[in-house]
Design a binder for these strands. Structure first.
Length: 155
DNA sequence: GCCAACGTTGGC
DNA sequence: GCCAACGTTGGC
């Protein structure tokens, strides 16, 4: 099983939004970065665990855990001219962008903030805490996953 | 292939 | 709102 972290701006799509969806499941559309796409398309597998991260908000940080319930398939919003994610260069015969379906598992006991994550040397290699890195989807190692979960109950 | 201009991300 | 960092675009 692989571990991941996925970012979303809570004003656009929050963990509460995911929790409220039918089946607590939603497709993760709108990824328009090749590195992130490649990870979704080639490496994300059913059952993988994912940290849900709230970005661009008052307290950016990890807010919950979700899992993959459908592996990659074409992101249909790229074909929709009315979508903010429309990409005229993606055609249905040879889609450029992909997405996966994710399902809510749980909220973390508290928000594990970016500021806090930056304080742990065990996490210093995560793209998340590296200056200038803007990857919206990134792999998380087993050790990093365990480290982060262990912070959940730290007051 | 180079690189300047531009757009986006996302913390602060 | 600011701005640093980075990715993409397009002229040449």
């Amino acid at each position: 099983m692989n571990y991941w972290l996925m970012k979303s701006e809570p004003t656009v799509f929050s963990i509460e939004d995911l929790k409220a969806r039918p089946g607590q499941t939603e497709h993760w559309d709108g990824v328009r970065n090749y590195q992130a796409r490649n990870m979704m398309r080639d490496q994300m597998k059913l059952g993988d665990r994912i940290f849900f991260y709230h970005s661009n908000c008052a307290v950016p940080g990890i807010v919950g855990v979700m899992t993959i319930v459908r592996e990659s398939y074409p992101d249909h919003t790229a074909f929709d001219p009315t979508s903010r994610y429309f990409d005229e260069k993606s055609d249905m015969g040879n889609p450029r962008w992909f997405m996966v379906d994710v399902r809510y598992i749980r909220n973390t006991n508290r928000v594990i903030s970016l500021a806090e994550l930056k304080a742990y040397s065990a996490l210093e290699n995560m793209p998340l805490v590296r200056k200038g890195n803007r990857l919206s989807i990134m792999p998380v190692s087993q050790a990093e996953w365990n480290c982060i979960l262990s912070l959940e109950n730290v007051p």
